[in-house]
């Protein structure tokens, strides 16, 4: 469970200061599929970054499974990013010169997983996103949709409890977006807690809970009956 309490993030630029988050409190239960939505600059990505330890709050706490992230040491933060959460970004954030396999294997190497088991786990992750056939391709040679699927495979290869996705379909066309959302829904159905940040209402409606933010504050938090994502496997490039 993720528990956010009174979270503030202040950016200072000279004399002026800007609150990206103005005191957000939120609970996300295990197994939920939450979409955080809002206009640009509403603080949704900042909130996700705080949950993912990519940024530090000015005030407030984020408790994940009862542990305060701000009290984590460098080693604990690294372990948290490696094993507890998986990240997916709009820009994919893959290592372009590495192969698909190398990209997906990286978290396993860093977690100290025995290399003899890595291939099996990498292949399983790539199977889950339908990219096993591209295992030897360089990441830079893949299409946007394929790169995003590799990013998802990398995010789930260490079997994290939480999947954090920041505008995962932001760079993709409709067909690829459908495919990515379908994969995320499938992962959610398999028991993962999925939190996506999106400004696209269509994507948000595929989640079972929609949190809307504005000016660094949560302005609505509603349950949603998810619209199933496109389930048929499309050949999208």
């Amino acid at each position: 469970m993720i528990s956010v309490r009174g979270l503030k993030k202040e950016y200072k630029t000279g004399e002026a200061s800007l609150f990206a988050l103005g005191g957000v409190s939120l609970d996300i239960k295990e197994g939920e599929f939450v979409a955080i939505t809002g206009k640009s600059g509403s603080g949704k990505s900042t909130l996700l970054n705080m949950i993912g330890t990519l940024d530090r709050p000015t005030e407030g706490t984020v408790l994940v499974d009862g542990k305060d992230l701000s009290a984590f040491s460098g080693k604990q933060v690294a372990e948290y990013r490696n094993k507890t959460v998986g990240f997916v970004f709009q820009s994919f954030y893959l290592e372009p010169s590495y192969t698909v396999y190398d990209n997906v294997e990286l978290p396993l190497i860093l977690s100290g997983s025995p290399s003899k088991n890595n291939r099996e786990r990498v292949e399983a992750a790539l199977e889950a996103v339908g990219l096993i056939s591209k295992i030897k391709e360089k990441a830079r040679n893949l299409s946007g949709g394929e790169q995003q699927r590799v990013a998802i495979a990398r995010a789930i290869v260490n079997d994290p409890s939480y999947l954090l996705a920041d505008e995962p379909c932001g760079n993709l066309d409709t067909a690829n977006s459908e495919n990515i959302m379908h994969i995320l829904s499938t992962l959610h159905a398999a028991g993962k807690t999925v939190i996506i940040v999106t400004h696209d209402p269509e994507d948000a409606r595929k989640a079972e809970r929609i949190v809307t933010m504005s000016d660094g504050l949560v302005v609505s938090d509603v349950e949603n009956t998810p619209i199933p994502a496109q389930t048929e496997e499309k050949e999208v490039v």
Binding site: G74, K75, A78, K83, F87, Y93, P107, L110, R154
Partner: peptide, 15 residues
């Protein structure tokens, strides 16, 4: 960027 990618997936500074 590459360093941040590695940090993102759990690499420590020392690693």
């Amino acid at each position: 960027t590459q360093i941040c990618r590695m940090k993102l997936v759990g690499a420590r500074e020392g690693t």
